[in-house]
Design a protein around this nucleic acid. Sequence first.
DNA 1: GTCTATAAATCGATAGAC
DNA 2: GTCTATCGATTTATAGAC
Lengths: 224, 224
Amino acid sequence: MPAKPNTPETPATSVTPNAADASPDSRRDELVSAAARLFRELGYERTTVRELAKAVGLQSGSLFHHFRNKEEILMAVMAQGIEAVIRLGNAAVARYTDPADRLAALFRSHMITLLEGVGHDAMIALLYEWRSLSPQGREQIVVLRDAYEALWQSVLDDAAQAGLVHGDTRILRRFILGGMNWTVQWFQPQSPNGQSAAELTERMLASVLPGLPSGAGLGQGDSR
Amino acid sequence: MPAKPNTPETPATSVTPNAADASPDSRRDELVSAAARLFRELGYERTTVRELAKAVGLQSGSLFHHFRNKEEILMAVMAQGIEAVIRLGNAAVARYTDPADRLAALFRSHMITLLEGVGHDAMIALLYEWRSLSPQGREQIVVLRDAYEALWQSVLDDAAQAGLVHGDTRILRRFILGGMNWTVQWFQPQSPNGQSAAELTERMLASVLPGLPSGAGLGQGDSR
DNA sequence: GTCTATAAATCGATAGAC
DNA sequence: GTCTATCGATTTATAGAC
């Protein structure tokens, strides 16, 4: 079955157009990337389909050959965001067996993906445009989000078992993810004499989860 | 100078109509409360002035006798939110002298204000509708927000001095506020067999900042 | 201070030529 | 697959009667 963009008789059972067939569909990918950036800068509601089309050199009407409607664009952006963070999170955790190493790696993976990863615009849209989804749209995205949170829960539970963290790990999971997700509200990557995403990540890790293996040669040690 | 709603020759120097004159202006207050609730439920962009007017029993045109434009309503909502949390935060801190007590009190004040306080709709709008403000609007709100964050910084610095917390207190401040602010993304107050805002607050405090004086007779002790 | 009525602009989405 | 052209609905905000 070749790639067939936006045929009305095909119900959108999957968010992504099917990873099995290797259809490049570069136009669609280009649109999703541009949409992610605009949604982060302006928000979903304030981004018009005209702006979106212009960003990739199209007329507004041509958008609807690739997507049925505006919400489907948001869905594609969000799916890209959550899939990126899941894939990188799994890879980060798989590199270690020690609970402390795994927790630190997952923490770093989340922060870097969120602050400067390839899908960081998409992930920010995922986090902050939740309300713009229809109930049907949420159903699809919530499945992916829950899978990612389950990964965190598992890593945190192992860390608690090892005595690395204390207290209710379900609450800790939500609090830690919240503290990280909130960084996009104030962190400015290219600010002069400001810190980089990697520096911030190491300092935050050392302050929030002390006792974990810290630093990848980033000049930590004292946090002054 | 009596209350004079929305006279064009009066530049809006203050966000609130001036607390000095005791003008009730109950209609305006009513509008701000209704707007806060709608902004939280639907978001600022998706809330129309028609819905807003209907919520207080007005026609849409009558709104603009009380507010110059839609953004001015958002500004009033945000100002109400930040002023409430500043007032309650200051009061909570003022009750104690011990750094541990002050930090715990400020934590509780923030959580309760955010989750079920009188201005919690307004505070949520403040946190999540930042992008809908014009640059001029942000300038006014950021002053109030910075005052509140300075209170947190001061309390956290005292706690660090006393050895209650460790690490970079500026990063800790942002992380803790982020973790708390994120709770509105998942906490559901009236969920059956769910926890109350007060229960969640105590469990979160115990898990996130262990070693602080915990519990106001809420049955804490073990977090099971 | 609230109403009715509507201006003026913009929105998402469609139709049909090429 | 992209274009031009536009529909129809909806938006914020205004004008003037009462």
